[in-house]
Write a protein that binds this DNA or RNA. Structure first.
Length: 418
DNA sequence: TCTGGGGTCCTAGGACCC
DNA sequence: TCTGGGGTCCTAGGACCC
C-alpha cells in the first residue's frame, strides 16, 4: 500500500500558521517577484481565483474582495516543511519526500499492523495538525498514481473529509469515475484534450484503455499511467528516487539589470546554487548551460545561452564560477534590459564512476567544498559565497507582501503577549 | 510606470558523418 | 513499377508538475 500525504494549498496554509488573524480569510500567495498567483486557499478558491494568473491582472478583484496577499516566503515554507515531514515520517518506515509539501509513504508488510487505513489516515492528519497547524490530505492506493488519485478525492471530492482509500475495485471505480482526466497524475491539459477527442473523459475511462494502444498512440508515459490506474505499480520506489538528470537554478529579476557586473554576479550566484545541489546529489557536472535573456514580452527579445564543457566533470564551486566567467562575455550585450538568467547542469556524471583525465593535475579542493557546505548549512545558505557572486543587490526579487521570518530570523520570532 | 514562476524530462527535427 | 540509410549529437520547444 502507498500513501500520499500533502498539505491543503500549502503556501497559503503556511502563512496562516503563525498568523491566526488570517485563518478565516481568503489568502493567496504570489510567485517570485510577485509575478503570478501560485497558491489559493479554499476560501479564496470559492471566489473563483485561478492559479498562475499574473498578479497585476487580478489585483483589483483581490482588493475588492479583501483577499489577503502574501509574497512567497520560502525560508518559512522550507522550515515548516521539514517539521511536517518529520511528523509524517513517524507513521511509516519508508518515506519519500517528493516536493516541499508532498511525501509518499510505502507500507510493506503493514497488513497485519493496520486494520483500518481510514483511521490511520485520520491519525496522520490529527498529528500533523496538532504539531504544526498545517492541514493535510491523505490518500491511500495500491500504486503511487492511485495514492495520488485518492489524495485528490480526500481534498477535493465531497464526503471524504481529508482521507480516502483505494484498496479494492469498488473504491477505485468510485473515485476514478469522479475524476476528470487532467486530475490524473501525469495527464496535463494537452494530453487531456487529445484523449477527450477519443471519447475518454474520466480517470475511470482512461483506466479501461488498453495500455499497449495508449503506448502506440501517445507514449510510454501514458501506458504507465494506465497500468498504475489498474493497480500495477510501475513507478517503483527506486525509480521515484532516481537521481536528477539535470539541475537548474534560474530566476527573474526584481528590476531589470543592464550592468555587466550585476548580471555576472547574478549568474555566478546561480552557479553556486547549482554546485550545491550537485554535491548534495553526489553527482558531477560535465556540461553546464549558462543563459540570460530579456523578457519574452519585450519588443526586442534577446536570449543567449552557451554551453561550457568541463574537461573533467566537477562539483567544485570555484571551477564552476570560473567557467561562468569564461563564457560570460559571449552572453552579455550592452543595452539589453536583462530580465532573467540562470545556470543549468545538463550533463551529469556519477561521482563514483568518474572518468579521470590522465593529464589532469589540478586539485579538486574537496575538503574546501565540504567546509563551505558545512558553514552554509549551519549559518544559512549564502553566508559565505565566492566573491564573484557579489552581494545581494537591487536585482534581488521583489517581495512586497512578505510575512516575517517567524522561524528563521531571531528578531522576527513571534511574540505572545498575555 | 510597469508588471507575466521555477524545475525537470522528453521529443522532434536538423546537422553531420560514414 | 517505383524506389535512395542509419546513427549520433545538438537544440529548441513542448509537456508536465507544483
Amino acid at each position: 500500500m502507498y500513501a500520499l500525504v500533502d498539505a491543503v494549498s500549502y503556501y497559503a496554509s503556511a502563512e496562516k500558521v503563525f498568523d491566526p488573524s488570517i485563518r478565516n480569510k481568503p489568502v493567496v500567495v504570489l510567485t517570485n517577484n510577485d509575478g503570478c498567483i501560485c497558491a489559493v486557499d479554499p476560501i479564496a478558491r470559492k471566489l473563483g481565483i485561478p492559479k498562475f494568473i499574473p498578479y497585476f491582472q487580478i489585483k483589483h478583484f483581490l482588493a475588492k474582495h479583501n483577499v489577503v496577499i502574501r509574497s512567497s516566503n520560502y525560508e518559512l515554507y522550507a522550515d515548516l516543511s521539514e517539521r511536517m515531514m518529520n511528523v509524517i515520517s513517524r507513521f511509516c518506515d519508508n518515506q519519500y519526500v517528493y516536493s516541499i509539501d508532498e511525501s509518499f509513504l510505502h507500507f510493506k508488510n503493514y497488513d497485519s499492523l493496520i486494520k483500518d487505513w481510514h483511521q490511520y489516515g485520520h491519525e496522520i492528519r490529527r498529528a500533523v495538525w496538532k504539531e504544526t497547524r498545517l492541514p493535510v490530505g491523505v490518500g491511500f492506493g495500491t500504486t503511487p498514481t492511485l495514492a495520488k488519485a485518492a489524495n485528490h478525492a480526500a481534498k477535493k471530492l465531497n464526503g471524504y473529509n481529508g482521507v480516502a482509500v483505494i484498496n479494492d475495485d469498488h473504491s477505485r471505480k468510485e473515485i476514478l469515475e469522479k475524476m476528470s482526466l487532467t486530475d490524473v497524475w501525469g495527464i496535463g491539459s494537452k494530453l487531456g484534450k487529445r484523449l477527450n477527442i477519443l471519447g475518454i473523459k474520466t480517470g475511470w475511462e482512461l483506466a479501461n484503455q488498453s495500455p499497449k494502444a495508449m503506448r502506440s498512440q501517445f507514449s510510454v508515459l501514458v501506458e504507465r499511467t494506465v497500468n498504475e490506474l489498474n493497480g500495477i505499480a510501475c513507478l517503483n520506489w527506486d525509480e521515484v528516487r532516481q537521481d536528477k538528470k539535470e539541475i537548474f537554478s534560474t530566476r527573474s529579476f526584481g528590476q531589470r539589470v543592464t550592468e555587466y557586473n550585476s548580471l555576472k554576479a547574478a549568474i555566478t550566484s546561480h552557479g553556486c546554487i547549482v554546485a550545491r545541489k550537485i554535491r548534495k546529489q553526489r553527482s558531477l557536472i560535465k556540461r553546464l548551460l549558462v543563459f540570460a535573456s530579456s523578457s519574452p514580452h519585450d519588443d526586442n527579445y534577446y536570449k543567449k545561452s552557451l554551453i561550457y564543457e568541463f574537461p573533467v566533470a566537477t562539483d567544485n564551486t570555484l571551477k564552476i564560477a570560473a567557467a561562468i566567467s569564461f563564457v560570460f562575455d559571449e552572453i552579455f550585450l550592452n543595452g539589453v534590459n536583462f530580465y532573467r538568467c540562470g545556470v543549468g547542469a545538463i550533463e551529469l556524471e556519477n561521482c563514483q564512476f568518474q572518468q579521470q583525465d590522465f593529464f589532469n593535475t589540478s586539485v579538486n579542493n574537496q575538503e574546501l567544498m565540504q567546509c563551505y557546505d558545512h558553514i552554509n548549512k549551519r549559518y544559512g545558505n549564502g553566508i559565505i559565497e565566492v566573491a564573484a557572486a557579489g552581494q545581494r543587490e537591487k536585482w534581488e526579487m521583489r517581495r512586497n507582501f512578505l510575512s516575517p521570518g517567524y522561524t528563521s530570523k531571531w528578531h522576527e520570532i513571534p511574540k505572545i503577549i498575555c
